[in-house]
């Protein structure tokens, strides 16, 4: 049968078996594989999506039940490449291990925060009661949802944003860089003539490369090993 669905703000017209589950249409016909099937009986919550803002198990809902309604899946959480605050907090708090429950967890948490922007820990645990996780013991997940709702907490993980900062790489000092440049240029020139330079053919760094007053031996030869 012909179905008109609105998923993540996009309208889709799909041809589906009348008994097709919402999960099947999302995954098999719309290619939205973020919604997972863990049990097929509405017990594990891996297939959780929002229908008109409410969390439902898409494995025990027929696609026809979602006609004319707004469906939101995990793929619709990030906006313009920017992660939803929940997604961001799941990353920061180490709430993801195998990740198979993650999309469903995110959607249940999203529905909770839409209805109750500052939930208590108990509210969070009850809201996630229908989402099973076998990896995490839920601590990090609960912490992430709390953090997304504005509770103060210390993020557990190195953030992708921070990675850049931590990875602030040291550049080659100008003198050495000049040498590198010379070698590369010389090598390129020679390569054009077809004779690769020998590895030992470094130009002398010359006196200026050694800053005045540099010690001749390190104070602690073991340091940094």
């Amino acid at each position: 049968m012909q179905l008109l669905l609105t998923v993540n703000g996009m309208q889709y017209e799909v041809e589906a078996r009348p008994t097709a589950r919402l999960l099947d249409v999302l995954r098999d016909q719309l290619g939205l594989i973020g919604t997972k099937e863990g049990c097929g009986e509405g017990e594990c919550g891996a297939c959780t999506v929002l229908v008109d803002g409410r969390a439902v198990n898409s494995c025990v809902m027929l696609a026809v039940q979602a006609r004319g309604k707004d469906v939101l899946t995990v793929e619709g959480l990030a906006q313009d490449g920017e992660l939803d605050v929940l997604q961001q907090k799941f990353v920061e708090y180490g709430a993801v291990q195998c990740g198979y429950c993650t999309p469903g967890m995110l959607m249940s948490a999203k529905a909770l925060l839409m209805a109750n922007p500052v939930p208590s820990e108990q509210d969070i645990r009850i809201a996630l009661a229908g989402n099973l996780c076998r990896c995490t013991g839920y601590s990090a997940i609960v912490a992430a949802v709390k953090a997304a709702s504005g509770h103060d907490a210390t993020p557990a993980m190195v953030l992708p944003g921070e990675a850049e900062e931590l990875a602030a790489e040291v550049s080659t000092d100008p003198e050495t860089l000049a040498i590198v440049q010379e070698v590369v240029e010389a090598a390129e020139a020679e390569l054009i003539q077809g004779t690769p330079p020998a590895p030992e053919a470094f130009p002398s760094p010359g006196a200026p490369a050694m800053p005045p007053g540099a010690p001749t031996a390190p104070a602690d030869p073991e340091e940094g090993e």
Binding site: A167, E169, V170, S171, T172, D173, E175, T176, L177, V180, V183, V184, A187, E188, L191, P196, P197, P199, A201, F202, A209, P211, A214, P215, P218, A219, D220, P221, E223, G224
Partner: peptide, 26 residues
Amino acid sequence: GAVHVKNDAERAVAYRDIARLSEMRH
């Protein structure tokens, strides 16, 4: 991401530059 000279904060060579030399088979 660089090799540094002990007790000489000014001197270092970044890995990407070593990579360039390596590429040039130096």
